[in-house]
Design a protein around this nucleic acid. Sequence first.
DNA 1: CTATTATTAAACGAATTCATTGAATAACAA
DNA 2: TTGTTATTCAATGAATTCGTTTAATAATAG
Lengths: 223, 223
Amino acid sequence: MSSHNFKQEIFDQFARIGKAVSNGRRLELLELLAQGKHNVETLADMCSMSVANTSQHLQNLRQSGLVNASKIGQHVFYSLSSDRIVDLLAVLRELAEDNLNEVNRLIQQYLQVKDDLEPLPRADLVQRAEDGLVTIIDVRPGLEYDSGHIPGAINIPLSELDKHLSEFPTDQEIVAYCRGPYCVLAFDAVKTLRDKGFQARRLEDGYPEWKRSGLPVEEKMPG
Amino acid sequence: MSSHNFKQEIFDQFARIGKAVSNGRRLELLELLAQGKHNVETLADMCSMSVANTSQHLQNLRQSGLVNASKIGQHVFYSLSSDRIVDLLAVLRELAEDNLNEVNRLIQQYLQVKDDLEPLPRADLVQRAEDGLVTIIDVRPGLEYDSGHIPGAINIPLSELDKHLSEFPTDQEIVAYCRGPYCVLAFDAVKTLRDKGFQARRLEDGYPEWKRSGLPVEEKMPG
DNA sequence: CTATTATTAAACGAATTCATTGAATAACAA
DNA sequence: TTGTTATTCAATGAATTCGTTTAATAATAG
């Protein structure tokens, strides 16, 4: 094999990882899997895709080695094969934010609130939590909370938020987080809380990024 | 715009960055641009591609915002738009190494030497350089060396290596580096040097990773 | 055993990607 | 002006990707 061929072939291999993340639906799946294991039908529901199509994308991700599959009973549970994938998603996000005007247009348009809703950096949340100054709420679905969350956070899925308003302190800031910086759950939660007169802010990004940055987490035993 | 549409559209935008790095030829171009500015024809030569094809890929990268173009005289010089792209390439590389057997097969096959040629970690090189224990050679083409290199490294393009053998110390280790961990220039240099009886090793990766890690570099003034 | 559920496979057409070819453009030189 | 060089554009066809539809498989329940 010539050096020329080697170079081409090795870059073609790297490109296989690129191909895996070259499709928006697959990126959605990866973000969901970053919250924890999920089976095919659940993933299909959450992405509003047909089961067959979801399965096809998952096969694709599996062949790139980005996800693992394990059969438990009748279900096939998929999971990320490596924490590094959270880094990959983060870099893609940052580069898209920096380089694609379209991204900022979308954010402005859908999340108009962005300006007066400056998100809270991770490090700041750690400090305030230590000082006992905040209530942290995890607004993801219960199953995702169960498979891992920020210590001290209470789980209130967005759909349940209305029922729990009376439990929140009015003299303390409430910090909401969800799946990631562009997941709309926390945005919506903060909006609801603010409309009701609470002091609410959004964490700068979601649980996977928190965990990935080495900060402490509460997880149920693996298995 | 519904939250559902927002989610899909934002992930489609992130996927544009993925698409940009979903092709081996474009990854080659990005690695070359990580060494410094280059014009279209040079890039075409270095990748063994037609000029038109190279230009097309560069347009593609430009539309994803990963590279910038600036016309100087008759030439259009392309450059990386952000240092983060070096991180992106590194993550792709790591994930490919970890997850694709094919990558390791290729390495074994082409770079059989891998085992008895354990590469030198960056931190170790810093230490040994401080202690004056090593000679560092940069085996990239002169232009790439000129636009930035490791302090104290001397530039000996691979093609010139034979002419300079007499200049090397026989009592000191020689460390060679080039464009990146899979660039074959340093591999070949180390092989040549070892065959001639020198103590030679390869740096774990190349100049872009060195610079990106925050270690000191010697660069000519920007422009 | 048959029915049901969860997932994958196979086949299809529309859309996109990719390298090639040849022509267009733009800047400069003779 | 004409010619030359560097780059981009436009058109082509082969290959690949993507979502849909329909069928197959495999595990469990009745």
